[in-house]
């Protein structure tokens, strides 16, 4: 495995940076804790310490830096702490038979995954249909495409609460549907752009060839444009599903949500449990990684079976 080394080096570099960052991030917490335990720190009160930079604090209190690596409520937990919390709230819960309890990240991950998949399906469908319309009707290219681009310039965090409020207004109960819509809103765009490119991938001579056979527009679409677009489709699906996950999490953030990884992040913030936030963040990242990997696998299998050169 020639590729193992670069991967490990990058991973090591990230971990090292993370560990280095923990010291300045947690020095205030460590000093607060030491002060409460009766140790002498400089400056002596939390208020006075606010006036001093973290670098100064670290230089003046070198003995207390290490304590920053094992705080209960660290500003920045270490990777090991995050890993332990993640393990506790997933495998740990599952081992105790409480995988679907409200305190289990498996439960929250499942809620997020469902909304993500619905949003992904909806977004992919909208993206593909939009691309077909754009490729086939010039007017759609001029009328639809600008709006698609504008739609992505509106910050989703601003839009998400509105979608939730509006869907509640028109009598949609629960969070599932508005979450899927927010998720689809982010997901459809890469699919649309990728499919427009993919459906236009056939060369002029390939299109001319079908003309010499007197092929209909539908035949040209099914026998040339669709198969030619598939490599592009898979690439955009991979971007799309990651975007769908982000959309779902954003949809879970506005106040009122109680389940899903996004809600976990928000609640962790409100209750001052950074470990819970980080565990949820890492869980979201793992979920995204798994989803993208699955699509990548599907892409490899499909394109190989279709005979595309790997």
């Amino acid at each position: 495995m020639r590729n193992t080394w670069p991967v490990l080096v990058v991973l090591g570099a990230i971990a090292a940076l993370w560990y280095l960052a923990v010291a300045p991030m947690n020095i205030r917490g460590a000093l607060d804790q030491a002060e409460r335990a009766g140790a002498v720190v400089a400056p002596e009160t939390p208020k006075a310490r606010q006036e001093v930079s973290v670098w100064r604090l670290m230089i003046d209190n070198p003995d207390h830096i290490a304590a920053g690596y094992s705080l209960d409520r660290p500003r920045l937990p270490t990777p090991v702490q995050v890993g332990e919390e993640l393990w506790k709230s997933t495998v740990g819960m599952a081992l105790r038979g409480r995988a679907m309890s409200k305190r289990s990240l498996i439960y929250h991950g499942w809620v997020t995954l469902q909304a993500t998949l619905w949003g992904f399906l909806l977004g992919t469908a909208v993206g593909i249909l939009g691309a077909v319309a754009i490729v086939h009707w010039r007017v759609m290219d001029m009328s639809l495409m600008p709006w698609a681009i504008i739609s992505q310039t509106v910050p989703i965090v601003a839009l998400a609460p509105m979608i939730i409020v509006v869907s509640a207004q028109i009598g949609i109960e629960g969070r599932a549907i508005p979450k899927a819509i927010i998720s689809a809103y982010l997901c459809y765009f890469p699919v649309l752009v990728g499919m427009v490119k993919g459906l236009r991938a056939p060369t002029v001579s390939q299109i001319d060839l079908l003309k010499t056979y007197n092929a209909s527009a539908l035949q040209g679409f099914l026998k040339l444009r669709v198969p030619a677009s598939l490599p592009y489709l898979f690439t955009s699906l991979k971007v799309g599903i990651a975007a769908a996950l982000v959309g779902t999490i954003v949809g879970e953030l506005p106040t009122g949500a109680i389940s899903g990884l996004g809600a976990r992040i928000l609640i962790g913030d409100q209750f001052g449990t950074p470990l819970a936030i980080w565990a949820a963040l890492v869980a979201a990242a793992i979920l995204a990684g798994v989803l993208v990997t699955l699509l990548d696998l599907l892409q490899k299998i499909t394109l190989k079976r279709m005979g595309f050169r790997q």
Binding site: Q206, L209, L230
Partner: peptide, 13 residues
């Protein structure tokens, strides 16, 4: 007629 283009233009899939 059958038309043969400059590039073979076979569909790769």
């Amino acid at each position: 007629y059958g038309y043969v283009f400059q590039a073979a233009g076979l569909f790769p899939w």
